[in-house]
Design a protein around this nucleic acid. Structure first.
Lengths: 150, 150
DNA sequence: TTAGATGCAAAGACTTTGCGCACTT
DNA sequence: AAGTGCGCAAAGTCTTTGCATCTAA
């Protein structure tokens, strides 16, 4: 059954509750984000949106994502050093990106519980658990470090 | 006494050891980074360099920083969402940036010991402790959350 | 109706690259 | 002397903005 529909309606309600308008472009962005299981770059989101609504421009997608972020619907992270990636805020998690093979995978926020508590206690800093992006090297690449990097 | 001079010489040796050339521009960048106690944007580094050597161009600074990063002399991080910031690799630490007031402060890498161990054990992921950039809200701003944000 | 949203195109911010000359080794 | 590194300027990415038009409420 389309559980996704519930999520979509929920998000649209959030938009309306904030007295923002629900437009075709916004609805399509929501649909794309909900059906996406990965975080996406703006470029990817735009491409997916335009597959359904070719008239939607990238600038609109940027504006919508900015609005959604203010509403807490999405969050973004700067993984490597290129474009930002966005995903629904619902799934609270961190990003782990391998510096070598650039693979990114997501991990449950629970892994940051201890750190979060520590930072709060030590520095009075409340970690944004939606926005944790870490880099390092994955197991595969460390095992493969024989020659020089590509 | 100029402890900084030791650091500078050490870095220049690192460059020479890698069979890279030590130039005026590189030397100046090193001096700027060593005398800086904060991490700096490329723009800030360039400005500081040009104060001594006006002829050094931004593109050269970019190239030098890229080289230095490969040599392990500097590391960079993407804090908020704007330009990257660089600093000497010697001081291993993480960055905490407040989403509200944008203040950034640095914390010892020891705070990531437990997380690092956890990620390695659970995901086989070796955290890059030079490159941890976290966002959240600082104590001051959380205390001030009365009205809407600026 | 009417304030807010969009499309398009241009501008902006940050970074990278090509080329010939200069400087390090 | 040989070859890397540099300055300059142009190109490239990613993102933001201005403005006339369109649309959700």
């Amino acid at each position: 059954m389309p559980r996704e529909v519930d999520t979509i309606d929920e998000i649209l309600s959030t938009i309306r509750s904030a007295d923002h308008r629900v437009t075709t472009a916004k609805r399509t962005v929501v649909e794309v984000l909900v059906s996406a299981n990965e975080h996406m770059t703006v470029e990817a989101i735009t491409a997916a949106v335009q597959q359904r609504r070719p008239e939607v421009s990238p600038s609109t997608v940027y504006r919508i994502l900015e609005e959604f972020e203010e509403l807490g619907i999405v969050v973004h992270a700067h993984l490597s050093q290129a474009a930002a990636v966005f995903h629904l805020a619902g799934a609270i998690h961190g990003h782990l990106t391998c510096d070598i093979c650039k693979v990114t995978f997501e991990i449950p926020a629970s892994h940051f519980d201890a750190l979060s508590k520590d930072l709060l206690k030590t520095f009075g800093f409340q970690l944004d658990r939606h926005h944790v992006a870490l880099t390092g090297t994955c197991e595969k690449c460390r095992a493969t470090i024989n020659g020089p990097k590509p």
